[in-house]
C-alpha cells in the first residue's frame, strides 16, 4: 500500500486497510527494539516538534523515543516556556515552527479540532497526540496493535471499554478503529458519562458492568478524572468504584484469556484494583512499549522515511 496522507488527525477518517498498514509497519519496526543498537537512519535530518498544550508523560516521551530511534531530530515546545504565554495563538505558533524547519508537528491540545486547524495552516505533517474530547489516534492504534499481537486479529472480538466515555478521546478513537476492523465494541459507564447518542458511532451501550463483561475478549479500563465528581457527574468516587471499578471477581466474568488494558495514568483503587492492574491478564506495560513502535510507524509513513532493512 502506498501511504498518501500528510497528517494523522484521527481514526474516523482512516480506512481499515490504512489502519492495518500502520500496524504492519509498526510490527516490522518493532524488531529494532531487539537489536544491539536501537537506532536506524530512516528519518535522518528530519525535524520533529512536539507541541503539547496539556500535560503528558507517556505520549510525549513515546513520540520522542520513536523519532530518535529513527534518527530524527526532536524538539519539545512547551506552552509554559514559549511565546504562547505571550498570547501567541496556535496558528502563528505552528506557522513559526514550520518556518524554523519542522517536518512534523505533534500536537496535544485541550480543544477538539486544534490539530485540524494546524494541519490546514501548514504544509508539514501534523500528528494528533490528543485533542480535547475528540480523538487520540496513536493511543487507539497502540491499543489495537496490542490486541492484534495477542489475539491475531479483530474479527468477532468483544472489546469492552469502561469509564468516562463522554470525555474520553481514547475511547472515541478506539471505537472508530475497532469497529472498522470488525470488532464488537461495548461501552460501559454511568449514564452521566455515557450518553446514548454515542451508539451512533457503531458501539453498543451497556450501563451494567457485569453484563458488559460477560464473554469479553478485551477489557479496556479508562482513567476516571476525579475532578468530574465536583461537577456532579457522579456522587462519590466510592460509588463509582463500586459500580464501575474492575476487580478480580468481575474479571472472572470475561473470557479466561481476556486481555486487561489501561491507557494510563491509572488511579489504582478507583477504576481498577492494583492487583488486577499488576495481574497476569494485564498487558498495560506492553501497551506502552508497543506505543513506541506504532509512533515510529506513523512518523516513518508520514515523513516518507528511507526504506529500513528489517526482517
Amino acid at each position: 500500500m502506498v501511504w498518501r496522507r500528510k497528517d494523522l488527525l484521527g481514526l474516523r477518517n482512516l480506512s481499515a486497510a490504512e489502519i492495518e498498514h500502520i500496524l504492519d509497519t509498526a510490527a516490522r519496526l518493532k524488531t529494532i527494539f531487539d537489536r544491539p543498537i536501537r537506532k536506524v537512519p530512516a528519518l535522518r535530518s528530519k525535524a520533529v516538534f512536539t507541541l503539547f498544550y496539556e500535560a503528558s508523560t507517556r505520549t510525549r516521551s513515546s513520540f520522542d523515543t520513536a523519532a530518535k530511534m529513527l534518527s530524527a531530530d526532536t524538539y519539545a515546545v512547551s506552552p509554559p516556556t514559549s511565546s504562547v504565554t505571550k498570547g501567541e495563538g496556535l496558528m502563528d505558533t505552528v506557522l513559526n515552527l514550520e518556518a524554523i524547519g519542522a517536518d512534523a508537528i505533534i500536537i496535544r491540545h485541550g480543544c477538539a479540532g486544534a490539530p485540524e486547524l494546524a494541519a490546514e495552516a501548514v504544509g508539514c505533517s501534523v500528528l494528533n497526540a490528543g485533542d480535547g474530547m475528540h480523538e487520540h489516534p496513536t493511543q487507539a492504534l497502540l491499543d489495537m496493535f496490542t490486541i492484534r499481537d495477542k489475539k491475531g486479529g479483530f474479527k468477532g472480538l468483544k472489546v469492552v471499554i469502561i469509564g468516562d466515555i463522554l470525555h474520553s478521546r481514547v475511547a472515541k478513537s478506539n471505537v472508530w478503529g475497532l469497529c472498522k476492523c470488525g470488532a464488537e465494541v461495548v461501552l460501559c459507564g454511568p449514564p452521566t458519562l455515557l450518553p446514548p447518542e454515542l451508539a451512533a458511532m457503531g458501539a453498543t451501550i451497556e450501563y451494567d458492568l457485569d453484563r458488559a463483561l460477560e464473554g469479553a475478549d478485551v477489557i479496556n479500563v479508562l482513567r476516571l478524572q476525579v475532578e468530574r465528581q465536583a461537577r456532579g457527574l457522579f456522587p462519590t468516587i466510592g460509588e463509582y468504584s463500586y459500580y464501575y471499578g474492575v476487580n478480580t471477581d468481575r474479571l472472572r466474568l470475561a473470557k479466561p484469556n481476556a486481555l486487561l488494558m489501561h491507557p494510563g495514568p491509572m488511579n489504582r483503587g478507583v477504576e481498577i484494583r492494583g492487583d488486577v492492574a499488576d495481574g497476569e491478564r494485564s498487558v498495560i506495560l506492553e501497551q506502552v512499549r508497543n506505543g513506541v513502535a506504532v509512533r515510529m510507524a506513523l512518523l516513518y509513513l508520514l515523513l516518507g522515511g528511507v526504506e529500513v532493512a528489517v526482517d
Binding site: R12, A112, G113, D131, G132, M133, H134, E135, L166, R169, K172, P195, E197, L198, A200, M201
Partner: peptide
C-alpha cells in the same frame, strides 16, 4: 448536543 457533538468531541 447530539451525535455530531459527541463525534467531534465538542461540548
Amino acid at each position: 448536543l447530539g451525535p455530531v457533538s459527541l463525534r467531534l468531541g465538542l461540548r
